[in-house]
Design a protein around this nucleic acid. Structure first.
Length: 460
RNA sequence: UCCCCAGUAGCUCAGUCGGCAGAGCAGGUGGCUGUUAACCACCGUGUCCGUGGUUCGAGUCCGCGCUGGGGAGCCA
């Protein structure tokens, strides 16, 4: 007999005669002539309540079942006379697979997120983290569903890259050289002797390669791990994270913003429908205002605000900021959060930033001072998407590279895309962990990724 | 990298003015009960993060370090 997932049993409309349940004991309560065993198998948030009668041959052992122990239970399904659950299982046979000793670190009561982070190998066994990682899985699927249904092509851009000028932060170097004793040429490390014959790094973005495929396949997206060696110590940054980067040919900044807004709305709505039970845990215990926030995202049109107007609003606000706001200054977290949380109370897309604060590949606007860039700012998280229309005009692109100190010869292949059938195109990057934070109300990025990598921390 | 806060039992925390280390939960034993963060009684638990100092005496005050958290920058 095959095991039945608890999710399937509990969601059943009609009684299932016989079931084989395999899972882990969450808690046990003894009565006079029987014992209630709560079993969870990870397939859903809820446990199934098993009634183990004292007539069972191994009842003495059953009474020693501890939290965390693994069991296999064969029994019959019945409507539960008690409150709190529709179905329960009356055990015919309880096989104890493994008893967890009493130093099992997870207690039945609440633990802090900080403690659970020190036992990341066990935290998926808790309600909260089980729910978070089920949602993470469903949202991964939703990303593919969204783009595949629109006819986008999924592209696997490289993880190891030879270009160090992708323009987004510090890089992790990849090498097969012996770091204790590297080969030298003219007193310097000789990268000709390294694995690829030149310096290599982990990718900080698949965008540049993504553009090449958009200019061949039309609409593409990437979804994969991304690495930044920044010494960032915040609740919103990790050294290894997952990013979604769509890139669309024949697409201007307005279309780009339309996609970004529609995409976020789709994902939030998907989670609300598809992960209702898990989401309910977060609405109850993590963020009481979560459902309001999510409803607002789905129902309200995002505010679209040129950077210059954002600066004007901030200056008019009378709010005291730590950083001054003026045209040409990058908007700080405090400014973005003020706009999304205090001023508009909803997601805001800020666009047309001064070119002086943006990278070389963004398209220069007709005013010659701004570029066709956009950031999507959401309450509580801040920036969740950053994107732009790309500079498709070869001469403009080359002069921007010269201005910003990016060597043309290193990106000859990128420039080729503007040499042969160049077209207007746009794209953006969405931080997947930040999306999960938005959807669940979890406030630390370390708690939405199974085994977080941050400066000084790579356990598990 | 910078600023601020914290570190006491397996977990969550209290610890007054510098004077013998203490609760809840978890665990054990017994009881009660179609229970559901079950309940009641009893029992055990310590490198007070490390290190140096001040003091008759330091969990408590001071210096340094480590770890964790919050905020900022970098960004997704």
């Amino acid at each position: 007999m095959k095991r039945t997932r608890i999710q399937k049993i509990l969601s059943s409309e009609t009684a299932i005669d016989e079931v084989l349940i395999k899972g882990w004991v969450r808690t046990r309560r003894d009565s006079k002539t029987f014992s209630f065993i709560e079993v969870n198998d990870g397939s859903c948030l809820n446990n199934i309540q098993v009634i183990a009668d004292d007539q069972l041959e191994n009842y003495e052992q059953i009474k020693r079942l501890t939290t965390g122990s693994s069991v296999s239970i064969y029994g019959t399904m019945h409507e539960s006379p008690g409150q709190g659950q529709k179905w329960e299982t009356h055990a015919i046979r309880v096989e104890i697979i493994h008893i967890a000793p009493d130093d099992y670190p997870l207690q039945k009561k609440r633990h802090t997120d900080e403690f659970l982070r020190t036992i990341s190998h066990l935290r998926p066994r808790t309600n909260k983290y089980g729910a978070a990682f089920r949602i993470r899985s469903r949202l991964s699927f939703a990303i593919h569903k969204y783009f595949q249904d629109l006819g986008f092509t999924y592209v696997h851009t490289p993880i190891i890259t030879g270009s160090d000028c992708e323009g987004a932060g510090e890089l992790f170097q990849v090498t097969s050289l012996d770091l204790e004793n590297p080969p030298k040429a003219n007193g310097k490390t000789d990268y000709l002797a390294d694995f690829f014959g030149k310096k290599a790094n982990l990718t900080v973005s698949g965008q540049l390669e993504g553009e090449l495929f958009a200019l061949a396949l039309g609409d593409i997206y990437t979804f994969g791990p991304t690495f930044r060696a920044e010494n960032s110590n915040t609740s919103r940054h990790a050294a290894e994270f997952w990013m979604v980067e769509p890139e669309m040919a024949f697409c201007d900044l307005a279309d780009d913003m339309d996609y970004a807004e529609d995409f976020i709305k789709f994902l939030v709505e998907f989670a609300m429908k598809d992960c209702a039970e898990d989401l309910d845990l977060f609405a109850k215990f993590v963020d009481k205002n979560l459902m309001n926030t999510l409803e607002t995202i789905v129902s309200k049109q995002f505010i679209r605000l040129p950077y210059s107007e954002a600066v004007a609003i901030l200056n008019r606000s009378g709010e005291k900021f730590n950083y001054d706001v003026f045209f040409g200054a990058d908007l700080q977290t405090e400014h973005e959060r003020f706009l999304a949380e205090n001023h508009f109370h909803q997601p805001v897309i800020i666009y047309d930033y001064p070119k002086t604060i943006k990278p070389f590949y963004m398209r220069t606007n007709d005013d010659e001072t701004t570029v066709a860039a956009m950031d999507v700012i959401v309450p509580r998280i801040g920036e969740i998407i950053g994107g732009s229309q790309r500079e498709e005009r070869l001469e403009r692109l080359e002069s921007r590279m010269d201005e910003t100190g990016v060597a043309r010869q290193d990106l000859w292949w990128y420039l080729d895309s503007r040499r042969f059938g160049s077209v207007p195109h746009s794209g953006f990057g969405l931080g997947f962990e930040r999306l999960i934070m938005l959807v669940t109300g979890i406030t630390n990025i370390r708690d939405v990724i199974p085994f977080p990598r941050t400066p000084g921390s790579i356990e598990f």
